[in-house]
Simulated assay, not measured.
Amino acid sequence: MKAFHLVGPAPFYTNSFLLISDAGNAVVIDPAAEVQEYDKILKEHGGRLSLILCTHGHYDHVGSAGVLSREWGAKLYCEPADCRGTQLLPLKGSDSGYEEGEVIPLDELSFTVWHTPGHTEGSVVLLCENYLFVGDTVFQGSIGRTDLEGGDSRKMDESLRKFAALPVPAEAQVLPGHGDFSTFGQEAATNFYIKNALRNA
Rank of each mutant, 00 (worst) to 15 (best):
K43E: 13
V134D: 03
L198D: 05
A81R: 03
R70K: 14
H58C: 12
L51I: 09
R48D: 11
Y13I: 06
S21G: 04
G24P: 10
E37V: 09
C83K: 01
R154F: 06
G135M: 03
S123Q: 11
E71Q: 14
L91E: 06
L126S: 02
Y59V: 15
L53Y: 00
H45R: 05
G151T: 07
R199D: 13
S142M: 04
F111N: 02
G93L: 04
N191S: 01
S182D: 01
G97L: 06
K75A: 15
D22M: 07
N130M: 04
A23Q: 14
Q87P: 05
G141F: 00
G85A: 10
G122Q: 01
E129K: 09
N196R: 11
E44R: 12
S64R: 01
Q140T: 14
I194E: 01
G66T: 13
Y131S: 15
A189V: 00
P11C: 08
F12N: 14
L88T: 15
K40V: 09
D157I: 09
Q186C: 04
Q140E: 08
G135L: 05
L51H: 03
L18Y: 03
Y59Q: 13
K162F: 12
Q87N: 08
E158R: 13
L53F: 00
E99F: 02
E129A: 11
S64F: 00
Q36T: 12
E99I: 10
R154T: 15
L132I: 05
H58N: 13
K75T: 15
E102T: 12
F184D: 01
L127E: 10
D157G: 15
P31C: 06
G144I: 10
P80Y: 03
Y59E: 14
Y13W: 14
E99K: 11
V138R: 03
E100H: 08
G24K: 08
G118C: 11
L19E: 07
T146R: 09
E158H: 11
C83R: 01
Q140I: 05
P167I: 07
A197E: 05
N15S: 08
L6M: 10
L51F: 03
E158S: 11
E100W: 06
D107S: 06
S96F: 09
F17P: 01
